[in-house]
Design a binder for these strands. Sequence first.
DNA 1: AACTCTTTGATGACACGTCAACCAACTCGC
DNA 2: GCGAGTTGGTTGACGTGTCATCAAAGAGTT
Lengths: 157, 157
Amino acid sequence: MAVAPALLDEDERAVWQTYRDLHRELSGALETQLLRDAGLSGAEYSVLVPLSHTPGGVLRARDLCTSLGWDRSRLSHLIARMEQRGLVAREECSEDRRGSMLRLTDAGRDAVEGVAPAHSAAVRRWFFDQLSAAELETLATVFTRLLDTLRHEQRSP
Amino acid sequence: MAVAPALLDEDERAVWQTYRDLHRELSGALETQLLRDAGLSGAEYSVLVPLSHTPGGVLRARDLCTSLGWDRSRLSHLIARMEQRGLVAREECSEDRRGSMLRLTDAGRDAVEGVAPAHSAAVRRWFFDQLSAAELETLATVFTRLLDTLRHEQRSP
DNA sequence: AACTCTTTGATGACACGTCAACCAACTCGC
DNA sequence: GCGAGTTGGTTGACGTGTCATCAAAGAGTT
């Protein structure tokens, strides 16, 4: 006989609420800053960063999808828009004729590299600078554990 | 003379990445569960919860907006859709003729109260159950501090 | 080779959120 | 009371993400 699961208590609800508020404010602030300083959305920035870190500035769409944890069609739509703005270019994949290679253009590189310092500074100011070394270590441990739990559960619910 | 802000180092980048992955997976999993069990999106659920906690199930749109941290038009659009599905009803505000009062319908109450236990259980299983008491306390402290910092900065950049 | 199954990416329809414009109603100073 | 300025809420246009579907190409089996 199944027992009805208990609802969250006062303290838990408060922590959960704070977590969600924090994420909303933090991601909103970072998004605003990216848009103001470089005309990039957060999604666009998160596509440009791995491209700029890759030798040659070329990545396969499939690989970018898995490393971003995104749906394929989301990347496809976004790349279509970014291509039109000249931030990236699509090329054929030599090893797999279905594949699509994404190349960072010069304009795209200028945009990412131009805004990366300011973005890093914002993350530092609003996140890392507010934490002690011990707190940061706890966060690292906890985040990793939570993510592992989730990923494990998703594979075997 | 301004010093160019340094980019994030290896460890910081890893923590930041994990944080973002975690949020994506966690919110995605919770959203999926809400949709499957009650046909509600996360946004709808977050509107229904405060309504169900209010005596009478009535809240003023303006107050709900500020407590959710949402744009007015976002709530307006969402309520329009929810009203059409019979989850909430709009009524006039007696104190302020511009105002709009949102009332939880019986169907809306059934939906929230029906899914709340499962949702709470999911939050517990994927979040609280994975944390020690000390870790939870650290998270509570840190989240609150980060949120305060952000809110303070936003008022005086 | 022929068959099936899976993978990869693109596409169109749709749902949702943001933004700017708008109007009605309230507030406050005069 | 009157006017300027502010607030509350709605609306429409637009950008973006999700979903279902599709076609093409690979992988594996017989």
